[in-house]
Design a protein around this nucleic acid. Structure first.
Length: 256
DNA sequence: ATGGTTGCTTAGCAA
């Protein structure tokens, strides 16, 4: 099984690029984030014509996530159902074959000390509690998406400069590591140990050509799935050229 | 210290 995740930064702006990328890489499952459309406005027919089913947790203007899969998804869930606010479409879970796929767009947090940063930290804690309620670390489960957190210094081009920002603040890293401590492994780090592997580069200041990036998009898997993970890569080629998303896709393969 | 870019929506917000 080939599984990918990609923050596409608007599916309407990126549709042709996403379709071309899928044609080249043929993922069995592609989780996408920041689709910025409602379910009704998602261009599902274009992906159906391409051989993919689409399930959407949509929202107008902001946020929104979807799972595209070659075989039909089952048991689709769009909410934490934990009694807290669910106004923002950031969570989608579905079963594809033997694997439970969870697609997330973690809040960015905007600025340290802001309400949005508190919301981000709380949201990641809610995600961990969702996993605790519905799954065990023995499940075949993949948690994919834009986590808006670079886990370690080697995941940031200039860790000192980014330490006071929402993407690499100690508190953001701490909730991310608490999430992983439930029983998740970082697929890219199963296969690659070097620094300089990034999945996001700011549109500004020539960040991409200078490789001033951060690794904030992840495919996290439970131990039984990690044992079957044969490769995991970031496709930085997808970030190149005019009309690219500011994120690159992450792709992992599993012997399933 | 500020601004730099992109997308959505239509001047300003979010990232």
């Amino acid at each position: 099984m080939r599984l990918a995740t990609w923050n596409v930064n608007s599916i309407r702006a990126r549709k042709e690029r996403v379709l071309a990328w899928m044609a080249a890489h043929r993922p069995d499952v592609l989780c996408i984030q920041e689709i910025k459309v409602t379910e009704e406005a998602f261009p599902s027919a274009d992906f159906a014509a391409f051989g993919y089913r689409v399930v959407v947790a949509g929202q107008r203007t902001y946020n929104g996530v979807a799972i595209l899969s070659r075989i039909a998804c089952q048991d689709v869930v769009r909410r934490f159902d934990d009694g807290e606010d669910e106004a923002e479409a950031r969570f989608l879970a579905a079963t594809v074959g033997q694997v439970r796929i969870v697609c997330v767009y973690v809040p960015n947090g905007q600025a340290i000390g802001s309400e949005k940063f508190s919301y981000k930290l709380a949201w990641v804690r809610r995600l961990r509690r969702y996993l605790e309620r519905h799954h065990t670390p023995q499940d075949l489960l993949a948690l994919c998406g834009d986590f808006n957190v670079a886990p370690e210094p080697r995941d940031v081009h200039d860790p000192n400069a980014w330490a006071d920002t929402v993407l690499f603040h100690p508190e953001a890293r701490a909730v991310f590591h608490e999430l992983c401590a439930w029983g998740l492994l970082d697929t890219v780090r199963l296969h690659h140990q070097e620094s300089g592997l990034y999945s996001w580069w700011d549109y500004r200041q020539l960040a991409f050509p200078k490789n001033h990036g951060l690794r904030i998009d992840h495919i996290l898997v439970t131990a039984p799935l990690a044992a079957r993970c044969t490769t995991a890569e970031i496709d930085r080629n997808a970030r190149k050229g005019q009309g690219a998303s500011d994120h690159a896709p992450v792709i992992a393969e599993f012997a399933l």
